[in-house]
Design a binder for these strands. Structure first.
Length: 277
DNA sequence: GAGACGTGGCA
DNA sequence: TTGCCAAGTCT
């Protein structure tokens, strides 16, 4: 849940989630629609599907208990290098190299003297992080969480609190006078009218209602909510809806066949959509 | 390896 | 207000 999402926003959803599905077996028994709905507005709802899929794999291949080694964790849907390392360290006390956005920023500043880490994780950063993690497993886990928390709470991206930082005395960035980022300007993600926005709105509409929504209603609702011109964006909404079905986030159901038959007012293609059962 | 993939809060 | 950014992963 916390992947690319501030922990403070995750916490309430996480609490409800864990109460409803306390074990992998419980989560594995949920439907995709259940988890997408419970995911709420955390964003990237495919993470909800993957989390459920991971629970299924845990039940089928690991006896219902999370495996402790990084390789097995990494094999679970939605679990990448960072998450596998974090779980191995924080849940199982294993020695691992946890490199998240916070760790990357702390090392970029303290060691390399730069204001921000590069846009994407490099092999050199991973090597640097690995070289700093203590050998002893228990100590390494403390190191990993400490560097992460330092980045999250003190060595923040936009408002670092160097006056409260335990590394200030040895920080290369502070020593250099805290120079601004020298990299190329970061590309802000366009949003209005993007597929991302349209997909989000489609899922949002379906999450709000309990019943399948006929295609025309669904598409009109999304266009209206986003303030998009139907003539310009109708095809886009169609395409996004298809992509959501492809992703397993949305399920088509046959529309009611009226007195005019399947090719009546709602047809052809007069089906409805819902979150997957 | 670049690009896709949501959402909301804060400066 | 606009833009940045958040415990990344997958293709």
């Amino acid at each position: 849940m916390a992947q690319q999402t501030p922990v403070g926003r995750v916490e309430p959803v996480w609490r409800e989630w864990m109460e409803r599905w306390p074990t992998p077996a419980a989560l594995a028994a949920a439907t995709p629609g259940d988890v997408v709905r419970a995911w709420g507005r955390l964003g990237y709802p495919r993470r909800a599907l993957r989390l459920r899929e991971a629970a299924v794999v845990v039940v089928e291949r690991h006896g219902g208990e999370l495996p402790p080694d990084e390789e097995a964790l990494r094999a679970l849907p939605g679990v990448g290098t960072y998450t596998a390392a974090a779980v191995a360290a924080f849940a199982f006390g294993r020695r691992s190299v946890v490199v998240d956005t916070n760790v990357r920023r702390v090392l970029a500043r303290a060691v390399e003297g730069r204001a921000l880490a590069s846009p994407s994780l490099t092999a050199a950063e991973t090597r640097l992080a690995a070289s700093l993690v203590p050998d002893d497993p228990a100590t390494s886990a403390v190191w990993n969480v400490a560097v992460m928390e330092l980045g999250a709470l003190v060595c923040r991206a936009r408002t670092p609190e160097c006056g409260a930082c335990p590394l200030a005395d040895v920080c290369a960035w502070v020593a250099a006078g805290s120079p601004p980022d020298d990299g190329p300007p970061r590309r802000g993600q366009a949003w209005h009218g993007t597929d991302r926005q349209v997909r989000g709105a489609l899922v949002q509409v379906l999450r709000e209602g309990e019943h399948p929504v006929p295609r025309p209603l669904l598409e009109d609702e999304v266009l209206t909510r986003l303030g998009l011109d139907a003539r310009q964006h109708a095809a886009q909404v169609e395409r996004c809806l298809a992509s959501l079905v492809e992703d397993g986030l949305v399920e088509p159901v046959p529309g009611p066949v009226g007195p005019d038959g399947p090719d009546g007012p709602d047809g052809p293609g007069g089906e409805a959509f819902r979150l997957p059962a």
